[in-house]
C-alpha cells in the first residue's frame, strides 16, 4: 500500500454552487500532507467529501478502497480520525462522554491521550460546551487520537488559538505523524513548514499547485498562490 488517499476528478455541488471543480490529489502513506489555499476555496469541503459528509462525484480511494458511495461511518472505520474545522465537540456532553463516544474497538489509548492533554483528565466531568476554545480543540484532537488510527484528517487546528498553544498542538501532530498519515488543512505557514513534507494548493475548487513543503520558501510563489507574504 503506497497511498493513503487517492482523489480523482472530484466534483462537489452544494445548493447550486459548484464548489469543487475536478480536484485530483494523492496523499502518500506516512508523513504529513498539507492542503493550503485562501478562505473559501474548498479545503474543508474536500475533507468532508473524503468522509462522505457531502455528496460528490468522482473517485475517492482510501487505503485502496473506492469509498465514494460508502456511508460515512464505514469510511471512518477504515481507520480515520477527524478533527473538524470548528472542533464540533458535543457541547451538551461531558468531556468523558465525548471521549467515550469516540471509543471504537479495544485499543483505546486513554493513557497516551491524557499524557498529551492532562487538562482533559482533570476536566472529565465538565460539559464540553463550557470548555475554552483551546480546551475544546484538545478534546477534538484527543477524540481523533484515541483509537490509534492510521489516517488523520485535521482541519485548521490552529484556528483562533494563541501562538503558544498552536506550538503545542503542532508538537502533538508531529508525534502522531510518526505512525499515522496526516492530511492537514492549515493556513499558518510556519506550522505547515514545520510539519508537512508535501503540499497541495487549492484555488476556486481546483488544485493549482502540488509540491514539496520547501516550495513555501519561495516568496513569489507563496504570494502568487496564497496572496500572502511568505514571512509567517
Amino acid at each position: 500500500m503506497t497511498n493513503a488517499i487517492e482523489i480523482n476528478d472530484l466534483h462537489v455541488t452544494i445548493a447550486g454552487s459548484h464548489i469543487l471543480q475536478g480536484v485530483s490529489l494523492i496523499v502518500p502513506s506516512g508523513g504529513v500532507t498539507a492542503i493550503l489555499g485562501r478562505n473559501g476555496v474548498g479545503k474543508t469541503t474536500t475533507l468532508r467529501a473524503i468522509l462522505g459528509l457531502v455528496a460528490s462525484s468522482g473517485q475517492i480511494k482510501v487505503f485502496d478502497h473506492e469509498v465514494s458511495s460508502w456511508p460515512t461511518h464505514r469510511i471512518v472505520r477504515l481507520g480515520i480520525g477527524y478533527v473538524p474545522e470548528d472542533r464540533d465537540v458535543f457541547s451538551g456532553l461531558t468531556v468523558e462522554e465525548n471521549l467515550r463516544l469516540a471509543e471504537s474497538g479495544a485499543e483505546v489509548q486513554y493513557d497516551e491521550v491524557f499524557s498529551l492533554f492532562p487538562e482533559l483528565k482533570k476536566r472529565g466531568r465538565q460539559r464540553a460546551g463550557t470548555l475554552s476554545g483551546g480546551q475544546q480543540q484538545m478534546l477534538s484532537i484527543a477524540r481523533a487520537l484515541l483509537n490509534n488510527r492510521p489516517l488523520l484528517l485535521v482541519d485548521e487546528p490552529s484556528k483562533g488559538l494563541a501562538p503558544k498553544i498552536v506550538g503545542e498542538f503542532a508538537g502533538v501532530l508531529e508525534r502522531a505523524a510518526e505512525h499515522s498519515t496526516v492530511l492537514l488543512v492549515e493556513q499558518n505557514l510556519s506550522v505547515v513548514k514545520r510539519l508537512a513534507q508535501r503540499i497541495v494548493v487549492l484555488d476556486h475548487g481546483e488544485v493549482v499547485h502540488r509540491g514539496e513543503a520547501r516550495d513555501l520558501d519561495d516568496p513569489t510563489l507563496v504570494r502568487q498562490l496564497l496572496g500572502v507574504t511568505g514571512a509567517a
Binding site: 459528509l53 460515512t72 477527524y82 458535543f90 467515550r100
Partner: peptide, 23 residues
C-alpha cells in the same frame, strides 16, 4: 452508550457519523 449516541446525535448528527458510528 446508545443514550450518549442519541444525545450527541441530537446535537450534531454528522459528527457522530464522523466518529465511525452508524447513526
Amino acid at each position: 452508550r446508545y443514550g450518549i449516541i442519541i444525545r450527541a446525535g441530537v446535537e450534531n448528527r454528522e459528527m457522530v457519523r464522523a466518529l465511525g458510528i452508524d447513526v
